[in-house]
Design a binder for these strands. Structure first.
Lengths: 230, 230
DNA sequence: TTTAATATTATGTGCAGACATAATGTCAAT
DNA sequence: ATTGACATTATGTCTGCACATAATATTAAA
């Protein structure tokens, strides 16, 4: 007597058929009921398998129309955005950070625009240099809306990094991220590189509901590579 | 008589409680059976809701131990990697591409190393400039293992871009992606920018099983930003 | 021919129950 | 105290069924 067919089994077999082009891109694959009969399992088992494959973008499913192999499998890469300290410690290095600046100031227009703040609300600005084994790793430039994060003005930001403090203390939020490349400019000084060095930049803006919380700009030291797998 | 509770309802309510810190980070939340009673639905409904939240990294689940709110919610950002033509056309611009170079040659060591090729197998090298509204958008430098992709030597790569051809004709594969920033260097000529301009670079290596297929390096024109949402 | 009403169909989701599985906890024997 | 056997428990997943929903196909009416 054989084991029951699991949704993983179904998923693996369907994936195999797609890879082997038994079902080429664009093809309509058999319906759930039919596959359930073929694999001798319940329709809900097939459903879960196909649903998960559709989530990764490999299948297109539509009611009544059926399930097709994606013509243009939009490849999705999932990046994990860890807390900076963890990122550094994961590579085996020791993390240390220096608070270069911490003041309440009026934000420049570019920052206000990103946060969607019309009036010139004073924000908390912090500049932190993160070091891995005492070598500059990244420069963090952060603007925080103190209205949105009560308590941050009293937080011991010289000991805990703002990055970490916010993860622990601010409610979970949504936000957007942008990745780009820029010349180091004046930041080259803190990062110990030339002003025209090409730096990898991450900009993140987060909101809690409609209330903007923070805008962060991360400038990584030259040579940084962000890696992921498809 | 009210509608039945959906897994989306449960998901939303659990999310609300996490956001509102009713269940703070690290807290053990009630078991599925208990929640099913509270929400007056089946355990499988709660299961699906919690499973999906765990997939996004918001919950940690372990058999027997129960479900906890993640202490360090590893934020995952999902990047969509579209075909270049689609990426350009999605922004409303017209896509055009120029095949700058196309030859069979021995790959430099750096490329061979990435592909895991020990012997000096000749590879197909292509350099393509992609234009958006006739302005340089990105320079694509690609090395393809012709053994892995039969037919590519006869493909009309001057008309269809290699990018697109491979998506349509090569079996689906796995690969890794790296993002970084580099100075333009000699590529500045094709991209119409200074040699010391900071460029956003994407490098992708793909395999089919253990067989290496292609290594691509994408150099985006200055100002490019890759965006995503958490 | 076009449009509107209706039937059909594949996927989407809920339910109750059952058993599997992986941890954890308990307790006895050493 | 340590080890090992065993019970316990929360999640993991399968089943079979029902009904919901969205999209398509068909048919009838204008």
């Amino acid at each position: 007597m054989s084991q029951p067919t699991t949704y993983r089994d179904v998923k693996a077999e369907v994936l195999r058929r797609i890879r082997a082009r038994v079902w080429p891109p664009g093809a309509l694959i058999p319906g759930e009921e039919s596959l359930a009969r073929e694999f001798d399992c319940a329709r809900s088992t097939v459903n879960r398998a196909l649903r998960e494959l559709a989530e990764t973008g490999l299948l297109d499913r539509r009611r009544k129309a059926g399930t097709r192999v994606s013509l243009n499998p939009v490849r999705r890469a999932t990046l994990e955005i860890p807390v900076i300290r963890q990122e550094i410690e994961a590579s085996g290095a020791t993390h240390r950070h220096m608070l270069l600046e911490c003041r309440v100031a009026e934000a420049p227009l570019a920052v206000r625009a990103r946060l969607g703040l019309e009036d010139s609300l004073p924000l908390l600005q912090m500049q932190t240099l993160h070091l891995a084994d005492d070598r500059p790793y990244l420069l963090e430039d952060r603007w925080v809306n103190p209205d949105a994060v009560p308590g941050i003005l009293d937080a011991p930001l010289d000991r805990i990094s703002a990055n970490e403090w916010l993860v622990q203390n601010a409610a979970l939020t949504y936000g957007d991220i942008e990745f780009s490349a820029v010349a180091a400019g004046p930041a080259g000084e803190a990062l110990a590189c030339a002003a025209d060095a090409a730096l990898f930049m991450v900009e993140r803006t987060t909101w809690q509901g409609v209330q903007p919380i923070t805008y962060v700009r991360l400038l990584y030291a030259p040579g940084y590579r962000m890696k992921t797998v498809i």
